[in-house]
Nucleic acid binder design. Structure first.
Lengths: 245, 245
DNA sequence: CGGACAGTTGAGGCCTATCAATGGTGGTGG
DNA sequence: CCACCACCATTGATAGGCCTCAACTGTCCG
């Protein structure tokens, strides 16, 4: 197993693992990756770190898919706009998440910074080449695909069959799990109500109303952008969460 | 490029390509695959052809993901059931489509036969092994993942932001493109109204009403399970379809 | 201080779900 | 052969959930 290189972000001071290296060497059910360090190092050498301000575009919908990205810090949303202005948000991405590598010739969704964001940019062909050279990387990419497909399907069930209350509850649990797996702590939601609505297939007003409902019920506590889960059990039931065997 | 082996289904008499071979050797933007014929042949040798009757289960939700499948003929639906009986259909799969290979340890959706179905069953580990041995196969799998992710996202926009009319219109165009790309011909929809509803996040009644609306408007013609698209332009506009550049 | 903007809350309307009834079709058994 | 049943599709009536429009608050910032 490759040792994960560490680095410290000069801005945030947060210590983090090197992007691709971290992804390729770790992973939940990752098969023991036989990844050659030199190859990874070469990829990292050809990558660029970029900074994107809040609400700025990272890739435009329909852009030629030359590059892919990994979030180093901050939060990113993937966005699809319909002709008449309706908006849908595909995913929220956080530190460690990658996007754009799974595109065909063009990016089907745009990507924008929800907060100020630091990104690492790679040429997709470099990543492809790496996958060709190293079966461990190829496996990890397959596994990443599977994860994205799975969470995408989960979200489809939410959009297709869940009520507003259930969507909000599921969303809060999802964010809690991703932002701060520590059950006790309150989470800082980086996105606006509008973003939440466009992710959940709801309007801002409905998002607000359901949140206040949960608040008055004592299930959550709201303080500006911070939300604390007071009754995780109630939230789980409200969200129709499945128990995995 | 590997020549695609041909075979004739003893039941339907339809000539078709060998499953995996076809997938691995073809594909829209497929990089010129360097796939060794012997490896593919070995995989095919270890596969099984099975027959499943209408409405029978192929894989159960939460099943251990030992096998994956390719549809040889017929139509398959992937299904997720919520505790209270609400149902969501993830995808409809037709001849040539594969499913189950992208699972993690368990299948997150079940799979059922919409029509009587012929399937080819492969051990996932065999396919994984093939991908490890042959970078062309690995590439093709990545490409397949990308396609599934893309169509999944498209469907999320439908579920999150489109009206009932738009969903029906999009659905008809999608099915027309998959079942019979020939614009003129009428298409035979293999699935029930209930299936359509659970795929589109609607009820049977709404599906019916929107279909009859399209019929009286002269946009489509309905004859039992057969539907003919009379005005493709109107359907495209009704469905909010994007024009790809 | 005023404007812009996100968030919240209220009032009312529309779209879709729900409940219900009918028609059509295929399968079954008398 | 036909009565009967089960099931799917369709259509109607009604209800309810979410959207739309609108007003108000609080905060940030020039």
């Amino acid at each position: 197993m490759l040792a994960i290189s560490q680095a410290t972000d000069p801005r945030s001071g947060i210590t983090m693992s090197y992007p691709i290296a971290a992804h390729m060497a770790s992973g939940a059910g990752a098969p023991n990756g036989v990844i050659s360090a030199p190859v990874l190092t070469a990829l990292e050498a050809r990558s660029t770190t970029i900074r994107v301000e809040r609400d700025e575009e990272i890739v435009a919908q329909e852009d030629l898919a030359i590059n892919c990205y990994q979030v180093v810090s901050g939060c990113v949303r993937t966005v699809r706009l319909l002709e008449d202005g309706r908006r849908h948000i595909g995913e929220f991405l956080f530190a460690g998440d990658m996007f754009g590598w799974e595109a065909l010739d063009r990016h089907d969704f745009g990507a924008e910074a929800v907060t100020p964001v630091t990104l690492r940019r790679y040429a997709r062909r470099d990543l492809e080449q790496l996958a060709d050279q190293d079966r461990g990387v190829a496996r990890r990419l397959r596994e990443l695909s599977s994860c994205r497909l799975r969470s995408g399907r989960e979200h489809m069930v939410l959009l297709g069959r869940k009520t507003a209350s259930e969507r909000i509850a599921s969303f809060l649990l999802e964010m809690a799990a991703r932002i701060n797996p520590d059950a006790r702590a309150s989470i800082e939601l980086p996105m606006s109500r509008s973003d939440m609505g466009d992710y959940l297939g709801l309007t801002i007003e409905t998002v607000c109303r359901r949140l206040t409902r949960l608040r008055v019920d004592g299930t959550i506590a709201i303080d500006g952008t911070k939300i604390a889960i007071r009754d995780r059990r109630a939230l789980g039931e409200a969200g129709c969460e499945r128990v995995m065997h």
